[in-house]
């Protein structure tokens, strides 16, 4: 059959030339020395980049930061998103308008979310440091993004703000597909709201939760924009995650060989994670 390929071929050609071929070239870069600022050092170097990466202190810092960045972002996005979805699944006055307004952060361009939150954390023009000082969280109103111990929380908060609508939307759709008779039966049987939630709602949502959390974890681990704009990875690499490290290495140092090496490492980590989650799911489904 040739016909489907008439409709498909432009998409396939474009994905092939713009994504797949560069992907292969990118993997080959990780075995070369390619520094645009140092053109004489170009050539194949075998695993030299990987040896450098292993002994690169910044790589390990970035790996740890990637973990915490992803873990806190996904956890809060999921919990707040689930809460919002449950609220939106009930009836209340002005629901349509409410839904449009709470979903709005999702439409805000990421660079703008990043700038807005960076400004909110700035004590000159932003209210947050003053509020945190008043609540006793900070000793005095200062910018937490200048504090290596707290800096990562700046982008994490921005990420939670930006990502809650996505979780709410996907979970809301799943909630709406739960048959209403189940709830009616539970009510007749005298189940408490908490029992209804844990015995009907959660089990029905579980497959959707599993796949959404897995996809979002991968997506957030790759998500460099917020951190790059808000802190640039600083202070002292305390907010550097692997994807921002890839970007700054390519963009600022123009060291394409090493940037590709970090990228391959990140890809392998994500692959291992995905395989682990799929294996876990298979095992749980069997039981």
């Amino acid at each position: 059959m040739v016909e489907p390929f008439l409709y498909l071929s432009p998409a396939i050609v474009l994905i092939g030339t713009i994504i797949l071929i560069p992907l292969i070239i990118g993997i080959s870069y990780s075995f070369q020395s390619i520094e645009i600022l140092n053109p004489f050092a170009t050539g194949w170097v075998g695993f030299e980049n990987y040896v450098d990466l292993w002994s690169d202190r910044r790589f390990w810092i970035a790996l740890e930061n990637t973990f915490w960045w992803t873990f806190w972002s996904v956890s809060f996005q999921f919990l707040l998103g689930l809460g919002l979805a449950l609220l939106l699944n009930t009836q209340f006055f002005g629901k349509k308008l409410f839904q449009a307004l709470v979903f709005l952060p999702w439409a805000v361009p990421t660079f703008l979310s990043a700038l807005t939150w960076a400004w909110l954390f700035n004590p000159t023009i932003g209210p947050l440091p003053h509020w945190m000082a008043a609540l006793g969280i900070l000793d005095e109103p200062y910018n937490i993004m200048g504090d290596p111990d707290l800096a990562l929380w700046g982008p994490i908060v921005a990420n939670i703000w930006f990502g809650v609508p996505f979780f709410a939307i996907t979970l809301l759709a799943a909630l709406q597909s739960i048959p209403g008779e189940l709830y009616e039966a539970a009510e007749i049987d005298g189940a408490s709201p908490w029992q209804t939630f844990t015995k009907i709602t959660l089990p029905f949502l579980a497959p959707m939760i599993a796949i959404t959390v897995m996809l979002r974890t991968i997506w957030i681990a790759n998500f460099a924009d917020l951190i790059f704009v808000m802190t640039g990875g600083g202070p002292a690499n305390s907010t550097q995650i692997l994807s921002t490290y890839i970007f700054t290495t390519a963009f600022r140092r123009l060291d394409f060989g090493f940037a590709s090496t970090i990228a391959v490492a990140l890809l392998i980590i994500l692959l291992v994670y995905a395989i682990f989650v799929l294996w876990l799911r298979k095992k749980l489904v069997k039981v």
Partner: peptide, 21 residues
């Protein structure tokens, strides 16, 4: 499957090759 995979891997991976091309 290939289309799904393109949604998963770090697109930043290809930023260097894209720049050179």
């Amino acid at each position: 499957a290939v289309m799904l995979i393109t949604q998963m891997f770090p697109l930043l991976m290809i930023i260097a090759p894209i720049y050179k091309i």
